[in-house]
Structures are given as structure tokens and as C-alpha cells.
Design a protein around this nucleic acid. Structure first.
Lengths: 220, 220
DNA sequence: CGAGCCCTTGACACTGTTCAAGGGCGGTGG
DNA sequence: CCACCGCCCTTGAACAGTGTCAAGGGCTCG
């Protein structure tokens, strides 16, 4: 049903904004391939990423009940995206309440991740934040099959990590090199290698329950 | 319909946990009077509040699609709460899809606030975080009629503010006294007095759009 | 070859934390 | 009735973590 609701599929280049905050929206976007992010900017133009999206995510489904968004949505890499008109979603929720609840569920997963990001920024130091984010990303990527073992491609720059973890790029660089030196993880050239899982879990105070996975085990 | 779905109303004392993370849930809680919070704890036992709730909020509606929560829910003050069984919510979403979307909408408001909390912790300094939280709380309280002018009762301790803004109680004390001295706001004894709205909005980089209010103006 | 992006490193400043001590207030028990 | 205890807030001094500013190196692309 969801596939049938797609009205258009298109390619978008890396680093393009596809939805601006406040814009009236009558469609939502399903991410097919590539990585995207949701952003809020401060007055000085510094960005805070509030969510990262993987293939399979219904990126701005929030706009369906909300009508417009409070943040921007942009691509991180080249992406293939599908557009789904809201009136078709309305039809789905009316004809198949069960499917409607599944859509609802998926927006609540976003909310659960948001909460975890609040925790991350409120209670963890730089190394913990990086560790937490890397573990979250790894588990999510494994569930959609774009990561397997503890080494995987995650095409983010250090500036991206800074916008995610509330740090400057300079400090991201220092933190990553310290994590490398300590043998926790090696992040470079868009490739993440998780080395000491136990230590990463400890540093990031990571508990995967919030991802509501059936098999939430953090194992290589 | 929602009122009819309530199965029980009861009183809970201040500082009691009513839902623990992970617990299987078949009901959700509507807050009638009082203040509640949602919390995540770190290993050392320090808490991060991830949401604060006012009368009228459907506190753990997230548990309806999710089945259990990833965080704790506790009262801040004595509260009157109503319990709503999930099977009655299922019935509502099936018989009245429109009402179902309104419930969905209300969980997305929570998500929008979560995002704003991420921004607050990621990009603002202590004073900005306090300013942002005070403005958010004020607007929310005005929309449900428990605040009017720029002076209102908000029964939080400095430790609560610390758990909300990711600061130590010591630093909350210093920050509030600096805000008092600068004539921004006076927070004491559970009463907030917003003095210089323009300066608070600037410090907190506050834009109320994310609350999706019809009249979102920040005016005394 | 030059421009631009990404990453690294060093010196220094600043914000917030930690540890410690003390004051005010309300409630409780002797 | 008073003493004491616990909670909440405040203040000071030393310290840690992160930001800022500046310079430079490697790589890719035009």
C-alpha cells in the first residue's frame, strides 16, 4: 500500500536542502538510498543536527499530521527519494487503521531517538557522545542491512559529527584521535571501525532499548 | 470520546515514579492537574529530564504504539492523573480516524519539543538554556490557562532546572542570580518573573513556531 | 598550478564542574 | 517549646573540558 502511494522518485545531490522550516507541505519523503539529516540553525548560523536518516526512513512523515516542519531537511550524500502525497496517507489511515498505527509508530521511534540525543547532549562528554552516536548508527544500519560487522561506511565529515554531538570540528578531531589512540574506534575517510565495543558502550552509556529492535544485542 | 475512555482517576504524591522504563504498558496517563517529568538516568544516577508535562498533556501516549517506554515518568508536584486503557484508544482510532490523527499530532508535538531540547543543549550556553526553557514553559502554560502575565508559578527546584538544562545545581544557582542581576528574569521560590522578554528571546534564540500554536506571539 | 575542502596541532581563554562550607526554612520528635 | 534534621539555595576557590584563534598539511578537482 505504501509503495503504491508513492507519486514520484527522484535523485538529489549531496548537501541539498529539500525542505525548509515553516514551508507548507502536502507530501512527505521516503528515503530510498543515501543519508539525510534534519537541522536547526542558531542565530550565528551554526547548525545542530536533530536527526540522521538512513535508507528506509520516512524522513518527514511528521509533516503529515503537523502540516509543516519546525526544522530543515537536507541530504548528506547523493540520495534517491520517493515522494508520498498526504492525501494518500490519509486514505491509508482510514482504510487500514493498523497500517496507520505503524506509521505513527515510526514517528515515535524518531521521538525516542530525539530523547536519546537529549540525554547524550545533557549528560555525556565529547567521547561519550561520539561513542553513543556511533553505536546508534551502527545498530540502525545493521537493521536495514547496510552494515554488518563492526566496520562500516558512514560518510560524515568531522564537521557533521560536530553538528550532531554539539562540538566544534576542532574538538571532534581531538576526540576522534584520542579514541583512536585508546583503541576504542577508528573513524576516518567516511569509514567507522568499532574496535572495543565494551568500552564504547561504557563511554556512551549505551542501552539500545530505545530503538525498539527485536534483537537489540550489541554484538559484532 | 476521550473522556469516556478514562478508566480511573487518582491522586499521586509529589516526586513519585509512575512508570518505569521497559515496563509493559496497556494504559496511558492523562495529566489533569500538577506537573510531571520524563527522565533518563546515567550510570552515576544523574538524571536528564527529556520532557516536562502540564495539565492537559497525554503524558505517555507514546506507550500506546510503542508498548513500553524507554524512560521513566515521575511527578514533580502532587498530581491528579487519569488512566486510559489502550484497547479503548485502539477503538477510537478505528472508529474515528480523525481523532486518531489528533492523538498522533499530540505525540508529534512532544517530538518537536524534544528536537528543541536537543538544540538547546547542543547550541546554547547556560543562560540561553534557562531563557529558552522559561519561555517554552510560559507559552505552554498560557495556552492551557495556568499562566497569564509574565509572572507565574512554576514549582521547580534548582536541581530540576539542572536536570532539564544539563547543568549542575551550583551552576543553575549562579546562572539564575546572574539573570536576576542583569534584569532578565527573577526565578525563586517556585515563581518565575520574566522581566526583559526581548533579551530572553535573544539569549534563548527562541522561536515559538515549534509549539504549533495558532497565536504563537511572545508578548506579555 | 592554484583553490577549496578536510583534517590536525598548539597556545590560550572561557564556561561550567567539583569540592567544600555555610545559611535559611519548615517539619518532627523529645 | 526547642533542638535537630533535611532540603534548598548560595558562595568561594581550584580545576577540567571545550571553545577560539591561528597556522599548516594532504588531497581532489578544475
Amino acid at each position: 500500500m505504501l509503495e503504491a502511494a508513492i507519486s514520484e522518485v527522484r535523485l538529489v545531490e549531496a548537501r541539498e536542502t529539500i525542505v525548509n522550516a515553516g514551508e507548507a507541505l502536502s507530501t512527505s519523503t521516503l528515503l530510498l538510498t543515501g543519508f539525510m539529516g534534519r537541522y536547526m540553525d542558531d542565530r550565528a548560523g551554526h547548525r545542530q543536527m536533530v536527526a540522521m536518516h538512513l535508507p528506509g526512513d520516512f524522513v518527514d512523515l511528521h509533516a503529515f499530521p503537523l502540516q509543516h516542519l519546525d526544522h530543515d531537511v537536507a541530504t548528506l550524500t547523493p540520495c534517491e527519494i520517493a515522494t508520498v502525497p498526504h492525501d494518500r496517507l490519509t486514505a491509508i489511515t482510514e482504510r487500514a487503521p493498523h497500517l496507520g498505527r505503524m506509521l505513527w509508530f515510526s514517528t515515535l521511534l524518531d521521538a525516542a531517538m530525539h530523547r536519546e540525543w537529549v540525554f547524550r547532549l545533557g549528560r555525556l562528554d565529547a567521547e561519550g557522545r561520539m561513542a553513543h552516536f556511533l553505536l546508534e548508527s551502527w545498530l540502525r544500519m545493521r537493521t536495514v542491512g547496510i552494515a554488518q560487522g563492526p566496520e562500516f561506511r558512514l560518510p560524515l565529515t568531522q564537521a557533521d559529527y560536530g553538528e550532531i554531538c554539539g562540538l566544534t570540528t576542532v574538538h571532534v578531531s581531538r576526540t576522534l584521535s584520542s579514541m583512536r589512540k585508546k583503541g576504542l574506534a577508528d573513524v576516518r575517510d567516511g569509514v567507522v571501525r568499532l574496535i572495543d565495543l565494551a568500552a564504547l558502550i561504557r563511554a556512551g552509556e549505551f542501552n539500545p532499548d530505545y530503538l525498539y529492535l527485536h534483537d537489540g544485542a550489541v554484538t559484532p
